[in-house]
Write a protein that binds this DNA or RNA. Structure first.
Length: 156
DNA sequence: GCCAACGTTGGC
DNA sequence: GCCAACGTTGGC
């Protein structure tokens, strides 16, 4: 099983929105980057766990955990002219963009902010912390995962 | 296939 | 709102 970190802007779709979705499950649409798509499509497995990361907000950071609830399938928003994620160049016979369903697992008692992530030498190699990183989906190692979960369950 | 111009992400 | 660090586009 694999571990991931997935970014979303809370103004658009935050962890509370996922928790309030039917069956606490929703489709993670709108991924429009080939590297992120490849990971989502080729490597994500049902049962994988992912950190829910709030980006483009103050402060950014990890707010909880979700579970990958489906294999990848074509993202319908790419064919919807009314969607912000519409891609007129995507051929329905050969879809360009994919998504997975995700299920809410839990919200952390406290957010683990980006600043805090950066402050721990144990997390120095995290892909999401690398300079210039812009991927909305990044892999997380088991060691990083366990460390962050322990942080979230600690008092400070 | 190169690369300049442009668009996007996302922290600050 | 700014801008660094990308990724994408399209002329050549």
């Amino acid at each position: 099983m694999n571990y991931w970190l997935m970014k979303s802007e809370p103004d658009v779709f935050g962890i509370d929105d996922l928790q309030q979705s039917p069956n606490q499950t929703d489709s993670w649409d709108g991924v429009r980057n080939y590297q992120a798509r490849n990971m989502l499509r080729d490597q994500m497995q049902v049962g994988d766990l992912a950190f829910f990361y709030h980006s483009n907000c103050k402060p950014p950071g990890i707010v909880g955990i979700m579970e990958i609830a489906s294999r990848a399938y074509p993202d319908p928003t790419q064919f919807d002219p009314d969607s912000d994620y519409y891609d007129p160049k995507s051929d329905p016979a050969n879809p360009r963009w994919y998504l997975v369903d995700v299920r809410f697992k839990r919200k952390f008692a406290r957010m683990i902010t980006l600043d805090e992530l950066r402050s721990h030498p144990e997390l120095a190699d995290m892909v999401v912390l690398r300079r210039g990183n812009r991927l909305s989906i990044t892999p997380v190692t088991k060691a990083e995962w366990d460390f962050i979960v322990a942080l979230a369950d600690s008092r400070d």
